[in-house]
Amino acid sequence: MTSAVSVEQLSISFPSAKTRFTAVSDVTFSVEEGQTFGLIGPSGCGKTTVLRAIAGLNTGWTGLIDIFGAKLEPGRKITGDTRRNIQMVFQDPYSSLHPRHRIAHILGEPLKVHGAEGIDAAVGIALDRVGLSPALAGRYPHQLSGGQRQRVAIARALLLKPKLLLLDEPTSALDVTVQAEILNLLNDLKASHRMTFILVSHDAGVIGHMCDRGVLMSHGRIARALDRAALSELTEDAVEAAAWDETPGYRGN
C-alpha cells in the first residue's frame, strides 16, 4: 500500500493580539490510499485546523505535508492538479453554498473555470450522482433541505474528480436519519470514485462507522493513534475526556 497523504511535524499558529497562538503542534500521521482516516477530538483540539492546512485554506504552517507525492509549500496557495485532487466538504451546508447562486451555477461554475464543455448536462449528472433530481438545478440553496444542501456540497467537491476528499464534520448539522443517508452516500462514492477520505469528527459513532484508522487529538497534539481495535474502545466520554485533560474550564483568560 502506498501512502496517499503524509503529514510530518505539522505545527500551525495564528497571530493574536500579543503573541502567536499555537493551535497545532508536532502532528505526524500518514493515510494510505483508499482508506478513511479519522481526526477525532473535542471542539477546539485543532482537528479542523489540520484539515484546513491540508486543504490549502490556511497556509501559515510549518512541517511537511505530502499529498500523492506532491509536497505542499507553506505560505503558498495550492494550484494545478494538486488543487483538483484535494477537495473538501464543509461542516455546515448552510454556509458553504453561496446563498445568491442557483444550484446550476454552484455546480456549473467550477466546470466552466476549468474549461469544460456541455455544462448543463454535466450538472445534471453531478446531481444524479449524489441522488438528487436534476430538476433541483434551478433552485437556490435556501429552497433545499439540510440533507439536500449537503448532497449539493458533495456533488461540488466531486466535480473535479479529486483523489482526496476532506470531510469536516459533514453530518454534525444534520438529523440522524439524514446523517445515515449522507454517510451511505459518501461510502458509495468512495468505492466508485476510488477516493481517500480524511474525516474530522467529534462523534465516536460516526468515526467508528466510517474510519479504518485515525488519531485522537487533544490540545493541538496527537493524544493517541487509533487502529480498528482501538477505535472499538473509543467512547464519547473518551473523546470528551481529551478536552478536560489539562484545560481550565475557560476559554480565553
Binding site: A55, R84, E109, R156, A157, L159, L160
Partner: peptide, 16 residues
C-alpha cells in the same frame, strides 16, 4: 467564510 473557501477549493479565483 465557508462560501469563499469552498469557491477557492474548486479553482474559482481573481475577478470571478
Amino acid at each position: 467564510s465557508d462560501y469563499l473557501a469552498a469557491a477557492e477549493m474548486v479553482g474559482i479565483k481573481g475577478p470571478r
